[in-house]
Simulated scan of single mutants.
Amino acid sequence: MCFPFMPVTKEISYEDLKALLGKSQNLLLVDVRNKDEVDKGRIPGSINIPVNAVGDAFSLEPEEFKAKYGVTKPPLDAPELVFHCQMGRRGQMATNKAHELGYVNARNYTGGYKEWSEKEGK
Rank of each mutant, 00 (worst) to 15 (best):
N34Y: 14
N34L: 12
N34W: 13
K35E: 14
K35G: 13
K35D: 11
K35L: 10
E37C: 11
E37R: 03
E37K: 15
E37Y: 09
E37H: 15
V38A: 05
V38Y: 00
D39T: 10
D39F: 06
D39M: 14
K40V: 09
K40C: 06
K40W: 10
G41S: 05
R42W: 07
R42L: 09
R42Q: 13
I43T: 00
I43H: 00
I43F: 00
I43P: 00
P44L: 08
P44A: 11
P44C: 02
P44D: 11
P44F: 06
G45I: 02
G45C: 04
G45Y: 09
G45L: 02
G45R: 02
G45A: 02
S46A: 15
S46V: 06
S46M: 09
S46T: 04
S46P: 14
I47A: 04
I47V: 12
N48L: 14
I49H: 11
P50I: 05
P50N: 11
P50E: 06
P50H: 11
N52Y: 14
N52C: 11
N52F: 12
N52E: 10
N52W: 12
A53K: 15
A53L: 10
A53V: 11
A53T: 14
V54A: 02
G55R: 03
G55P: 05
G55W: 05
G55A: 07
D56P: 01
D56W: 13
A57C: 06
A57F: 03
A57L: 08
F58S: 02
F58Q: 09
S59H: 07
S59M: 05
L60F: 02
L60D: 03
L60Y: 03
E61I: 08
E61W: 08
P62N: 15
P62R: 15
P62C: 10
E63L: 10
E63F: 07
E63S: 02
E63R: 09
E64Q: 15
E64G: 07
E64S: 11
E64L: 12
F65H: 07
F65L: 06
F65M: 07
F65S: 03
K66I: 04
A67N: 15
K68T: 06
Y69E: 01
Y69C: 01
G70P: 04
V71H: 04
V71R: 15
T72S: 12
T72P: 06
T72Q: 14
